[in-house]
Computed example of a mutant assay.
Amino acid sequence: DGLTLVTLAEEAGVSRPIAYDHFATRPGLLLALYRRLDERHRAAITRALQDAAPSAGEIARVISVAYFACATAMPELGAVSAALRGNPEVEALQRELADSYTDLMAAALLPYSRLAPSALRLGCVGMLGAAEAIAAELNRDRATDDEAVTALTDAILGLLNTTAGR
């Protein structure tokens, strides 16, 4: 609640009109911050995938670790998301970013899948839903980090072993 364009300008040492010209509104500032945090997370997972050993298990584990690292290492993402709740622009941005994340995940898993690309992508949508549910359990201290990573990794590997979408 303390983040306003006025406080941003003061902290950045710039005039108020500069902050207003750049972001226009507080929701505009928060949307830019939300996008920036997502870009930081996407860059981290991309690096981790590039460094991962080329195996289904390792790719699934890297995706799982990266997902939960975002939930624990970037608590400000949840705060920004909560501050924007109900904003129609953030809902559109969240759908755009979820689609992008799904595409990244499906591309990383495609070499290890027996599913058609469209079926794999849909399965990745399901995996992200599962990841959110597991993250909720993690945040409620009903699971450890290791248990969360193992559960999501196992779910992803189960998806990869499915032949139903072929």
Rank of each mutant, 00 (worst) to 15 (best):
C124F: 04
R142D: 12
E96W: 11
A66F: 05
T46W: 08
T163G: 15
L84K: 05
G129W: 12
S118E: 13
L97I: 13
A164V: 11
A56H: 02
N139R: 13
A48T: 01
R35D: 15
A108G: 04
V80D: 01
I18M: 14
T46I: 06
A66L: 09
T7F: 08
A143I: 05
L122C: 02
D141R: 14
L120I: 02
A143F: 10
L128R: 09
V6R: 15
V90I: 14
A108R: 06
S113L: 03
R47T: 15
L152M: 09
L109E: 00
D146W: 06
P111W: 05
D38F: 14
T7L: 05
Y101W: 14
L109R: 05
R16M: 12
I45T: 12
L109V: 01
A131H: 06
L159H: 02
E76Y: 07
A53G: 09
A106F: 03
A53F: 08
P17N: 00
T25M: 04
G78I: 09
A71V: 15
F23C: 01
D146R: 07
L5Q: 05
A116P: 02
L5V: 00
A131K: 11
L30F: 05
E96I: 08
I134K: 02
S118I: 15
P27C: 06
L84Q: 02
D1R: 14
L3R: 03
E96T: 08
G28N: 03
N161I: 02
A133C: 10
D154N: 07
A32Y: 07
R140E: 11
R47I: 12
E76T: 13
E91K: 15
E89W: 09
Y112S: 00
E89D: 08
E58T: 07
L160W: 02
R85C: 11
V65L: 06
L128W: 05
M127R: 13
G158F: 01
C124K: 00
R40I: 13
